[in-house]
C-alpha cells in the first residue's frame, strides 16, 4: 500500500518536473508564445475578410473561425514542445531516467494544455470583439465546451507531435495526421458553441458535450497507452 502511494508520488513529481521545465523554457523566450498568439489573431482577421463584412454572417461563423484559428496556431505549439529536446539532444537522457514513460507525456500534455489554454482565452476574447459576439447567458457552459475541446486538441496534438517532430517533413506530417483525427472534436466544439451562443433552442449542446467528454476520455487513455511504444522507437 505504501509502495503504491510512494510510486504515485514519484510519478506525480516526474510529471510536474517535465511540465515545469517546458513552461520555464517557454517563459524565458516569450517570443514563441507571442508569435503563436499573433498568428491566431491574424487567422481570425483573415476569416473576417473571407466571410464578408455582414455582421450576422460573421456572428454565425464565429465558433468555426475561432476553433480553426486555435487549431492552426496550436499545431505550431505542438511541434515546438519537442523542439528543445531535439535541438539539444536531451530526449535520450530523459528516457534514461528510471520511471514510467507515460509521465513524460503527461507532463508535456499539461504544459501544452496551459499554453493552448492561454492562447484560447486570448483568441476567444479577440474573436468576440472582431465578430461582434455578445457574452451568452450560458457562459459557464461555453467555458466548459472550450475546455473539453482544448483537451481533445492538445491530447492528440501532443501525441502526434512526438512522432511528426522527429521525422522528415514534420511541418506537413503533423497537420496531415492530426486534422482528420480531430474532426469529431471540431464538429462537437463548433456545434456546441454555436448552439450556446444562439440560446440553444433545440438543446443540442448537451449531446455534443457528452460526445466531447467521451472523445477526451477515450483518447487520453489511448495516447497514454501508445506513448511508450512511440517514444522508444
Amino acid at each position: 500500500m505504501t509502495r503504491v502511494r510512494q510510486q504515485g508520488g514519484d510519478n506525480w513529481r516526474r510529471i510536474r518536473a517535465i511540465a515545469w521545465k517546458d513552461l520555464t523554457t517557454e517563459r524565458r523566450s516569450k517570443a514563441g508564445f507571442n508569435a503563436v498568439v499573433s498568428l491566431g489573431i491574424t487567422i481570425l482577421v483573415l476569416f473576417g475578410f473571407a466571410l464578408g463584412p455582414d455582421a450576422q454572417v460573421l456572428r454565425d461563423a464565429a465558433p468555426g473561425a475561432l476553433w480553426l484559428a486555435v487549431l492552426f496556431a496550436g499545431v505550431l505549439a505542438f511541434n515546438r514542445s519537442y523542439q528543445v529536446e531535439l535541438d539539444t539532444g536531451a530526449l535520450e537522457p530523459l528516457l534514461l531516467y528510471p520511471g514510467a514513460r507515460w509521465t513524460i507525456f503527461t507532463g508535456k500534455l499539461l504544459a501544452n494544455m496551459l499554453f493552448v489554454g492561454l492562447l484560447l482565452v486570448i483568441v476567444v476574447i479577440a474573436g468576440m470583439v472582431l465578430f461582434a459576439v455578445k457574452v451568452p447567458d450560458a457562459w459557464p457552459t461555453v467555458i466548459a465546451v472550450l475546455a473539453l475541446g482544448a483537451i481533445g486538441l492538445v491530447t492528440l496534438g501532443t501525441f502526434y507531435a512526438s512522432m511528426a517532430s522527429r521525422s522528415r517533413a514534420r511541418e506537413v506530417l503533423l497537420p496531415l495526421l492530426l486534422f482528420p483525427m480531430l474532426v469529431p472534436v471540431l464538429l462537437a466544439a463548433m456545434q456546441a458553441s454555436k448552439a450556446l451562443i444562439g440560446a440553444d433552442m433545440m438543446l443540442e449542446a448537451g449531446a455534443w458535450i457528452k460526445m466531447l467528454i467521451a472523445y477526451d476520455i477515450i483518447f487520453v487513455l489511448a495516447t497514454h497507452l501508445a506513448f511508450e511504444h512511440v517514444i522508444e522507437a
Binding site: M181, V183, P184, L187, Q191, M211, I218, A222
Partner: peptide, 15 residues
Amino acid sequence: LGSINVPIVWMSVRW
C-alpha cells in the same frame, strides 16, 4: 488510434 476514431467520426458526422 485511427481505427478507434472511425466510429466516432461516423457518429459525429451523422449528427
